[in-house]
Design a binder for these strands. Structure first.
Length: 204
DNA sequence: CATGGGATTGACT
DNA sequence: GTCAATCCCATGC
């Protein structure tokens, strides 16, 4: 028997002030915060930053129907389908008019682990949310949440629990992209066993 | 309106 | 290590 979401005390939802900052700061500060949805929750252990000034970001092409969420108000979810298969969850950052977001890439499962196992068809806790497509499947996050307010839900991001307040982060290059590959815009909780891939070259 | 390319994953060699 | 699955959407004719 594992912890149910109802038995977990979630902290305050992160508000517009938190997200309306440079995307690199938000990406770093989101490590240790909690994502929860529909009976499940996990601590963010891996993020990546994307900004309209660099070509790996969807917003690089400018304002289109697809990118309108990215250019919209900070603190909303940007959810899109990847490779026709997976829904990927991002948190929109920076002031309105700037296209930037933080991709949530991995969680350390915290509550609703049995439900995650059923949704994923995987046993090992370390593999339930280790990857951007895996974690949305584990939490039941779908495309229709694109544009939703992450402080209100249905997908919620809340402040760091006490045990994560001093988490140390490591920086690395982003994964799975073909352009702007050199930017060290991936942030990982140091020593975490729940990452999508190990930290390769720690950049300072 | 046709085309092509993914911010991925898991199964397989 | 390779590779297919499969859908959204930007682009170009």
């Amino acid at each position: 028997m594992t912890v149910a979401l109802d038995d977990v005390r979630l902290g305050r939802g992160l508000g517009r002030r938190f997200y309306e900052r440079p995307v690199l700061e938000v990406a770093r500060d989101l490590v240790g915060c909690v994502v929860s949805h529909d009976g499940c929750a996990g601590v963010i252990v891996e993020t990546e930053a994307y900004h309209d000034s660099e070509p790996a970001c969807h917003a690089f092409v400018g304002l289109t129907p697809r990118t309108s969420t990215l250019f919209g108000p900070p603190g909303r979810a940007y959810v899109y389908r990847s490779y026709g298969v997976h829904a990927l969850l991002n948190a929109v950052t920076e002031p309105e008019g700037v296209g930037a977001a933080v991709l949530i890439r991995a969680l350390e499962p915290m509550a609703g682990i049995e439900l995650m196992r059923r949704r994923r068809g995987v046993e090992r806790v370390e593999r339930l949310c280790s990857g951007p497509g895996n974690l949305t499947q584990a939490l039941g996050i779908e495309l229709l949440y694109n544009g939703c307010d992450l402080a209100r839900g249905p997908v919620q991001i809340t402040e760091r629990p006490a045990a994560w307040r001093e988490v140390r982060t490591e920086v690395d290059r982003r994964i799975g992209i073909t352009r702007a590959v050199e930017l060290p815009w991936r942030f990982c909780a140091a020593q975490s066993r729940f990452l999508s891939r190990p930290v390769r070259r720690r950049e300072v």
